[in-house]
């Protein structure tokens, strides 16, 4: 960091200087002020997001007759108003866990493929293809998920129910289309694949060549090289990449809103249609909400904000501990 900024350049001797010194100085001050100002503006925005959301949330929570954290209902327009995030928190966490369980191993595989397996000339076009997945807007994933993926997954759901129904998790107790948390998890997995892949790839490419060559020299096969030198080196990078992906999955709105058929129930039968997530609930309930209803939605948004803040912050801290790579521009 320090080396990139040329600081402490000794001032030039004043005699040969033709230009008035003050013009440069004043320009410098203005410019520094502007750029520092926009930096501070960012911090102000972050702080005001927290403040404004909390304020509106507090308005709603003051009149909430139910327990905000344990109520299985969302009825702020009722008399008395009752709403709670229990189902939303559950749905958000479960769908994100499913997404992570699917996406992380595959993303690590793709990252290894691009960094170590793909033919050298193909590697960067392939990386680009994976990045294209990230460029597709989430609403398009949403309609694709609802109109293409959901009908397709019905077969898989039946199969899972038939052979893995004994795990309780995959037991399908309700008939109905596959508009379930499991489908949402699969869709989210596809959506977070690119970011997990690109951060992991960046880490894998930074494994010291010496380590790999040492393993090769001992007669290791390619897989052994990866297991012995690449994966241990990249572990913390993969962890933080996964957390970045988790942050995305937690806050995804449109893809969930289109695919899920919401209900205010908590069920570990992930193949059953139903459930809900924070973002999906906001999107679904917003149209019919009055002012108070909106404040209630803002309250749930605040929880989502805090959740993503924690996850992303933790991921960034892990990355920051190893300054060599920052997956931030992924």
């Amino acid at each position: 960091m320090a080396s990139t900024t040329p600081v402490d350049i000794p001032p030039a001797p004043p005699a040969p200087r033709q230009r008035p010194k003050s013009a440069g100085r004043a320009g410098d001050k203005v410019f520094l002020g502007l750029s520092r100002g926009s930096g501070i503006l960012l911090l102000v925005i972050m702080a005001s997001i927290a403040v404004f959301l909390s304020y509106r949330a507090a308005l709603a929570l003051a009149d909430n007759e139910g327990n905000f954290f344990t109520t299985f209902d969302w009825n702020p327009a009722g008399d008395p108003p009752v709403f709670g995030i229990a189902v939303l928190l559950f749905g958000t966490v479960i769908s994100s866990i499913i997404a992570m369980a699917i996406a992380v191993p595959i993303a690590v595989g793709i990252a290894l493929f691009i960094s170590h397996y793909a033919p050298r000339r193909l590697a960067s076009p392939l990386a680009y293809v994976v990045d294209l997945l990230a460029a597709v807007p989430s609403i398009i994933y949403g309609i694709w998920g609802a109109l293409v993926l959901v009908p397709y997954l019905e077969g898989l759901n039946l199969w899972l129910d038939q052979f893995f129904g004994w795990t309780y998790l995959f037991e399908k107790t309700e008939v109905g289309v596959a508009r379930s948390l499991f489908t949402v998890g699969i869709l989210l997995a596809i959506m977070i694949l690119p970011i997990v892949t690109s951060v992991s790839r960046e880490v894998f490419l930074q494994v010291p060549k010496m380590n790999e060559e040492a393993a090769l020299a001992l007669g290791a096969t390619r897989w052994e090289v990866i297991r012995l030198s690449v994966l241990p080196f990249g572990r913390s990078g993969v962890i933080s990449a996964s957390m970045l992906g988790l942050g995305r999955a937690l806050g995804e709105t449109m893809a969930v809103a289109t695919v899920l058929s919401p209900s205010f129930l908590i069920s570990f039968h992930v193949l059953n249609p139903g459930g809900g997530t924070f973002a999906q609930n906001i999107a679904a309930k917003f149209d019919e909400a009055d002012q108070f209803g909106r404040d209630a939605l803002i309250a749930s948004g605040l929880v989502l904000f805090v959740l993503t803040l924690l996850v992303n912050g933790a991921a960034r801290l892990i990355i920051a501990r190893r300054k060599e790579y920052s997956g931030a521009n992924a």
Partner: peptide
């Protein structure tokens, strides 16, 4: 200051779009 800005820029990339929407909504309200 610079460290704080760097950190919060990183965290800000992870703000869900719906939360950004809710923030402006609360100002609008």
């Amino acid at each position: 200051l610079a460290r704080a800005v760097t950190f919060f820029v990183d965290v800000m990339t992870g703000i869900p779009s719906i939360v950004a929407g809710l923030f402006i909504l609360s100002i609008m309200l």
